Amino acid sequence: SKWSPSQVVDWMKGLDDCLQQYIKNFEREKISGDQLLRITHQELEDLGVSRIGHQELILEAVD
């Protein structure tokens, strides 16, 4: 995926409302499409996504 960080942010805006709070962290870390495809629970935790349910929603959406 050749998504830029801004495309990742646009994609996140289409996800569940409960995930919108994390967008600024993804933006700050400039998460690209390639990074998103390989993202782990630990990396999500580092991005402030501490709730497992929220991590799962992001990982499922990526899949």
Rank of each mutant, 00 (worst) to 15 (best):
K13C: 07
L37K: 11
K2W: 08
S4R: 06
R38L: 07
Q20G: 10
E45H: 13
Q55Y: 00
V49E: 01
D63V: 09
P5Y: 14
D17L: 06
K13F: 07
L57K: 15
E45D: 10
D17P: 13
I39V: 09
R28M: 12
V9G: 11
Q55V: 07
L57F: 05
S1Q: 01
R51S: 15
Y22F: 02
L15W: 08
D46A: 13
R51M: 13
G53N: 15
C18F: 02
T40H: 04
N25F: 12
K30L: 09
E56Q: 14
K13Y: 08
I52M: 12
S50N: 06
L47T: 02
Q21C: 14
Q55W: 00
L57T: 06
E29W: 09
I23Y: 06
S50M: 12
E45G: 11
Q42R: 14
K13V: 07
Q42T: 11
T40R: 08
V9E: 07
L57I: 08
M12W: 05
I31H: 03
E56S: 10
P5W: 12
E43T: 10
I58A: 02
F26M: 03
L19R: 03
L36R: 02
I58E: 05
I23P: 04
R51V: 15
S1V: 14
V62K: 07
H54Q: 00
S32C: 14
D63N: 14
C18T: 09
L37W: 07
R51N: 15
D10L: 08
W3K: 06
Q21E: 12
Q42F: 04
S6E: 13
Q7Y: 02
W11Q: 03
V8L: 02
S6V: 12
S50W: 11
L44I: 00
K30R: 13
D16Q: 08
Q21F: 05
E56H: 11
R51F: 14
I58R: 02
L36K: 02
I31A: 01
K30E: 11
Q7N: 07
L59N: 03
T40F: 00
F26C: 01
I23K: 07
S4F: 04
D17T: 11
Q55H: 01
S32G: 12
H41Q: 13
W11F: 07
E60F: 04
C18H: 05
V8S: 03
G48V: 00
G33R: 04
W11T: 01
I52R: 15
Q20L: 11
D34N: 12
G14Y: 00
H41N: 12
K2N: 13
G48I: 00
F26E: 02
E27M: 09
Q42L: 07
L19P: 04
S50K: 15
I58D: 03
S50Y: 13
S6L: 11
E56A: 10
Q21N: 06
Q55N: 00
V62F: 01
L15R: 05
D10M: 10
I39Y: 04
R38P: 03
L37V: 12
L47P: 03
G48Q: 03
H54R: 02
G14V: 01
L59G: 04
S1C: 12
W3M: 15
L44E: 02
S6R: 13
D34P: 11
G33L: 06
D16E: 08
L47K: 04
I52H: 13
S50F: 10
R51P: 14
D17I: 06
D16F: 05
S50Q: 12
N25Q: 11
E27N: 05
S4M: 08
E43D: 15
G33N: 00
V49L: 04
W3A: 04
S32L: 03
H54M: 02
K2P: 10
I39R: 03
L15Y: 04
M12C: 03
F26Q: 02
D63K: 13
R51C: 15
G14P: 00
E43Q: 15
H41P: 14
L19V: 11
M12T: 01
P5K: 05
E45M: 12
L57R: 09
W3E: 03
H41W: 07
D10C: 09
S50E: 15
V62D: 02
W11E: 05
D46Q: 14
V49P: 01
E27G: 05
E45C: 14
G33V: 06
G48A: 01
E29G: 13
I31Q: 01
G14L: 05
E43V: 08
V49H: 00
Q35P: 01
N25V: 13
P5F: 10
L57D: 03
E56C: 10
F26H: 00
Q35W: 05
Q35T: 11
C18Q: 11
S4V: 05
I39A: 06
Q42K: 14
W11A: 00
G48R: 02
L44D: 04
W3F: 05
D16S: 06
L36S: 01
E43R: 14
I31Y: 00
G53E: 15
W11S: 02
V8N: 00
F26K: 01
V62R: 13
K30C: 11
V9I: 13
F26V: 06
S6D: 15
L36D: 01
D16G: 06
S6H: 13
L47F: 04
E29I: 08
K2D: 13
E29F: 10
G53A: 15
E45Y: 15
D17Y: 09
Q7R: 06
G14Q: 09
V62Q: 02
Q55T: 04
S1M: 12
S1N: 15
N25W: 06
W11M: 00
L19Y: 02
E43I: 06
D17G: 11
V62I: 13
S50T: 15
M12K: 02
W3V: 04
T40L: 00
L44C: 02
F26S: 02
H41G: 12
S32I: 05
Q35G: 06
I58C: 01
S32N: 15
L57M: 15
D34A: 15
D16Y: 04
L37M: 15
I39E: 04
W11G: 04
C18A: 10
Q7P: 04
D16R: 04
L19K: 05
E27T: 09
E27Q: 11
R28Y: 08
E45S: 14
I52N: 10
S50H: 15
Y22E: 03
G14E: 09
L19C: 08
I39G: 03
G33Y: 08
L37Q: 10
I58G: 00
S6K: 14
E29C: 12
R28D: 13
E56T: 12
L57N: 05
I23R: 09
Q55P: 04
K13A: 09
L37T: 10
C18K: 08
N25L: 12
R28K: 13
K2E: 08
E27I: 06
